[in-house]
Every structure is written in structure tokens, then in C-alpha cells.
């Protein structure tokens, strides 16, 4: 018999109560049970970073956590980054302006990682940003647009632009 538990989890500010098989990863739970398909599974072994979500404020790999471990916790996914009226987060705006995405598959993990990173490092150098996203693989952009976008978003978020 499958091992099934009931969990309570807050996702993007909305409370969810769901039954989940204990072997289900947090990433699969978000995508399949909640229909939040913005979180992408790129490697399912914790290297590519596409599945990164924010758990209680910290960026984590949703492929390396069980959904049952999110019980009682708060999760933010890429769907939760824009404002209530749909206005883009400064980082999303900057990605758009600086061509920080091509196919868009790694983008959700880049954004969630960098939102958490910029909170703790509001004035990053290019080197800081490159190290911060070294756990997020992008096959399309060569990273430069992402780095430029992050440098600008940091300034915007600091009110320096």
C-alpha cells in the first residue's frame, strides 16, 4: 500500500491541504498536485537548479525534498514572484530587458535563487552573482544576460536607479 500523508503547506501565500504519497518530491507535488507547473524539473538530482523554490525564505532544490517535508512550511514558486496586480518583480523586469532568458526552462530556478540571493546580498559584484548562480545551469544564454539583469535589478531594488 502506498504510504500517504496529509500535509498543510502554504504556497505563494495560499494555504493548501493535500494528501500526498511520501515518496513524492516537493517539485512533483507543486507541479502535479497543485498544478503550479512554473517550477521545472531539469535533472532531479540537484545539480541543474531549475526546480529551485523558496522554502521559509531560503532557496532550496524542490527535487531534493519530499513534499511531506514541506508540511507546515511556506513555499514561494516563480508564480508567486510578481505582484498582486501582475506587475513583474524587478528581477523579472530586468531579465526581460537584458535578454536573461531564451528557452525559459531554467528561468524559474534562476529567479527564485536570485530573489533569495539578492535579499542577503543586496550589492553583489559580477563575481558574486556568477558564483551564486553556479548551481543553476543555463544551456542557452551563456549567463551574461542573467548576470547583467541581476546587476541592474540589485540597483533598482536598492532604489539606486
Amino acid at each position: 500500500m502506498p504510504d500517504i500523508r496529509e500535509i498543510q503547506v502554504s504556497v505563494n501565500g495560499e494555504d493548501h491541504s493535500a494528501k500526498v504519497e511520501t515518496r513524492t518530491s516537493l517539485g512533483d507535488f507543486l507541479r502535479q498536485n497543485l498544478g503550479l507547473t512554473g517550477t521545472h524539473l531539469g535533472c532531479e538530482h540537484g545539480v541543474c537548479g531549475a526546480c529551485t523554490v523558496i522554502l521559509d525564505g531560503e532557496a532550496v532544490r524542490s527535487c531534493l525534498m519530499l513534499a511531506v517535508q514541506a508540511n507546515g512550511h511556506e513555499v514561494t514558486t516563480v508564480e508567486g514572484l510578481a505582484g498582486e496586480e501582475g506587475e513583474l518583480h524587478p528581477l523579472q523586469e530586468a531579465f526581460w530587458k537584458h535578454h536573461g532568458l531564451q528557452c525559459g526552462f531554467c528561468t524559474p530556478g534562476m529567479l527564485t535563487s536570485l530573489v533569495a540571493f539578492l535579499r542577503d546580498n543586496p550589492n553583489p559584484s559580477e563575481r558574486d552573482i556568477r558564483e551564486a548562480i553556479s548551481g543553476n545551469i543555463c544551456r542557452c544564454t551563456g549567463y551574461q544576460g542573467i548576470v547583467d539583469a541581476t546587476l541592474e535589478a540589485a540597483k533598482v531594488m536598492q532604489g539606486r536607479v
Binding site: 515518496r23 532531479e44 538530482h45 540537484g46 527535487c63 531534493l64 519530499l66 511531506v68 517535508q69
Partner: peptide
């Protein structure tokens, strides 16, 4: 879970029980 979970996902490790310390 950053080493165990990949091994679970790849089924390199197939335990009957998982005891979570978190």
C-alpha cells in the same frame, strides 16, 4: 537530503523506511 535524495531519485538506494531527522 542533498546526497540521499538524488540516490533515492535514481533508485541507487531503495530503502524500506526513511527516517527524517528534520
Amino acid at each position: 537530503g542533498q546526497s540521499l535524495m538524488p540516490m533515492l531519485n535514481m533508485r541507487f538506494v531503495v530503502p524500506d523506511h526513511v527516517i527524517d531527522l528534520n
